[in-house]
Amino acid sequence: MAHTDMTYSQQQTAAPKRLGIKRWGGAVPYLFIFPWIFGFLVFTLGPLLFSLIISFFDWPIVGQVTFVGIDNYVEMFSNDPLFWKSLFVTLKFAALFVPLNIIVALGLAMLLNQNVKGSAFFRTAFYLPSVISGVALAMIWSWVYSGDYGILNYFLSLVGIEGPDWLNDTKWSLVAMVIASLWGQGSMMLIFLAGLKGIPKDLYESASMDGAGKIRQFFNVTIPMITPTLLFNLITSIIAAFQQLTLALLLTGGGPLKSTYFYAMYMYENAFKYFKMGYSAANAWFMFLIVLTLTFLVFKSSEAWVFYEGEMKTKKEKAKPKRAKRGPQASREGSSI
């Protein structure tokens, strides 16, 4: 079982000695990442710190600015039911959306990975919704979901089901939002597809020689081999789920009865409907910390389940003659995120 072998060995990889680094006094890597550092300092860090500062102020867009200490944070946790409500809605959405999004995107990618004729057409079809602008998307979905006059219920009625008034029914509105959001999975599908195409055929061949069926091949070859892609898609899905705003803003406005009132929307309204910039900044920082924590946990866990072939290969050759050489560098490599 070649793959399980890789699984273990990956973590014990001894990184090969890097050449040509020390001579440059270690400045080279920083030069490579310099564009990002510069952009981060200028376009991100400054504005971000500014928003941290204003989160300690009562900061209306127009009018008097007053320092209020941690009042905004206290208000948020102890006095604002909408904060908890919107947080709960977002968590519920994320719990539904993230796994479904990955399953759908991976499913479609695997369908497309079967050497089908006309794959260019199918890929484009699956990606189509991703090129449509948000304004039009919301209109299309409102036409789909309308209770009495909607196309979805029209089709349901053909098979004898009386559909709900999707967007005006608290039980269904969030589900409707999840479905609508899944429609835009095109990028993720494409990334999965690229990952799937990268799996060497011989791995499947040797697996099937080992007597592994299709399902075992999927779990023992496909999944391990696309873990870097999976990690990427998982994290971007989580972030997307927490930042979901456009659809809520354009389609439901958070309703009915706040059932689709996402945290991002709560933040947005505090800023641009109620003009409480300070409070909104406090909201944002809290969300930022939540997503950061989640991502951090996913990354920590990824050491156990993500395999980078670049490192595996090196290992395979190095490790065969000498088993698991550990060094100070290796442990750092192991903790690479």
């Binding site: 990184a15 680094i21 490579f32 550092i37 928003s51 933040m267 909104s280 944002a284 930022f288 990354f299």
Partner: peptide, 26 residues
């Protein structure tokens, strides 16, 4: 490359993805 603070910096890269745009907008 391996360099001092690489993993920390990379976490920051990722963290910037999580910044809601509404916050830094103004």
């Amino acid at each position: 490359f391996q360099f001092k603070g690489r993993d920390g910096l990379f976490l920051i890269v990722l963290a910037t993805m999580m910044i809601p745009w509404e916050v830094t907008m103004i």
